[in-house]
Design a protein around this nucleic acid. Structure first.
Lengths: 98, 98
DNA sequence: CCTCGATCAACTGACCCTTGTTCATCAGGC
DNA sequence: GCCTGATGAACAAGGGTCAGTTGATCGAGG
């Protein structure tokens, strides 16, 4: 699923136009982004938690040349799905008869 | 940041009421959830990729007792932030001069 | 249009993940 | 607005797994 399809789905959910849905999707994503950036994390009950995490620097190897290189510490975003989300996935994952 | 604050932020972004923003947030999250569930993954350009991942079963240890236990394979959701998102974090993380 | 994204290769070590309790906070309803 | 149910975070310790690196290309999406 890509952004367009997500927007379509949101439009269907909200009963609005794709244009409005696009704004909604963009706004939500942007707010999550800002939340992670400013608040170190966004906890959404029943969905999951976005959390800004610092990756420790380490030594990696260039797969092309095999030469080692030092990675400097960087920031990334971790997502910890809630049990409800994992359960929602399991619904289809173990969906024998539908 | 929690869900309520996210809703407030979205309401501010969209210029709508918190009630409408709540619907939008819920719709977007639900659609992402369904997308991950049905489509194995949701790729959002400029934000990141949610991907349903199957965790292989393995042996873990109960940190309380120290006794090993066998984990059965399960599903989880991985989030791979886009470079743009990581860059957005870096803006504040390494904000040297402003 | 044209950029973003996924792919693939070998390798390394950082990080996730488990249990279980408990408190605090959050979301929801009237 | 307040009460209540429920969800989530922290901690401790160890091991197995997965992420991450370069770089060019193809494909699709915005």
């Amino acid at each position: 699923m890509n952004k367009g399809q997500l927007i379509e789905a949101v439009a269907s959910e909200l009963g609005t136009s794709r244009t409005q849905a696009a704004k909604a999707v963009d706004a939500v994503l942007r707010c999550i982004q800002r939340g992670v950036r400013d608040s170190d994390g966004v906890t959404i009950t029943g969905f999951g938690t976005f959390q800004k995490k610092s990756r420790a620097g380490r030594t990696v190897r260039n797969p092309a040349t095999g030469s080692p290189m030092v990675l400097e510490p960087s920031m990334t975003v971790g997502f910890r799905p809630s049990q409800a989300l994992k359960d929602a996935l399991a619904e289809t994952a173990a969906l024998p008869r539908g």
